[in-house]
Simulated assay, not measured.
Amino acid sequence: MAAPQDGPWLDDAAGRLVRPYTVSNGRTRPTAALDLLSMVMTTGALPAGQMGPEHTEVLGLIGSRPTSVAEVAAHLRLPAVVTKVLLSDLVDCGALTAKAPSFRTHNPTDRSLLEAVLDGLRRRL
């Protein structure tokens, strides 16, 4: 049976009881340009119209701190593309803002950037 924090949507033997394509209403392409490293943040505006429980969960998860698309997908236990569709719904209605990763303005193969990432990883390990 599902763990109490997972709610009725997960079953240990069967996995997710609601298929990802039903969460996104069969859509596979987000309307907003989102990368896995894009940062999303709530605006404080309430979504207009009918939103699903996953949309509400996303807003509660993000709160007022910037959160990456990848982190949201991991917490929701949904594929990244489904998460991007949900997030783009919230961006479209004004409940979220999205910011592209900052390395887009820099060369991602810049040696100093790669060395800084490596140094950070070494400090963590």
Rank of each mutant, 00 (worst) to 15 (best):
M1G: 07
A2T: 14
A2I: 14
A3Y: 12
P4D: 13
Q5R: 07
Q5L: 01
D6N: 13
G7C: 03
P8A: 14
P8W: 05
D11Q: 14
D11L: 12
A14I: 13
A14K: 14
R16Y: 08
V18I: 15
V18T: 15
T22N: 01
S24E: 01
N25K: 07
G26M: 08
R27G: 01
R27P: 03
T28I: 09
A33G: 03
A33K: 09
M39Y: 01
T43L: 11
L46V: 11
M51A: 11
P53Y: 04
G60C: 00
G60R: 11
I62N: 02
I62L: 03
I62F: 03
S68C: 03
V69T: 10
V69S: 04
A70L: 09
A70N: 03
V72T: 08
V72F: 05
V72P: 09
A73E: 02
A74Y: 04
A74C: 10
H75E: 12
L78R: 02
A80E: 05
V81P: 02
C93R: 03
G94M: 09
G94P: 13
G94F: 12
A95N: 05
F103A: 15
N107F: 03
P108L: 09
D110A: 15
R111K: 15
L113E: 13
V117D: 11
L118N: 13
L121V: 15
R122E: 13
R124W: 13
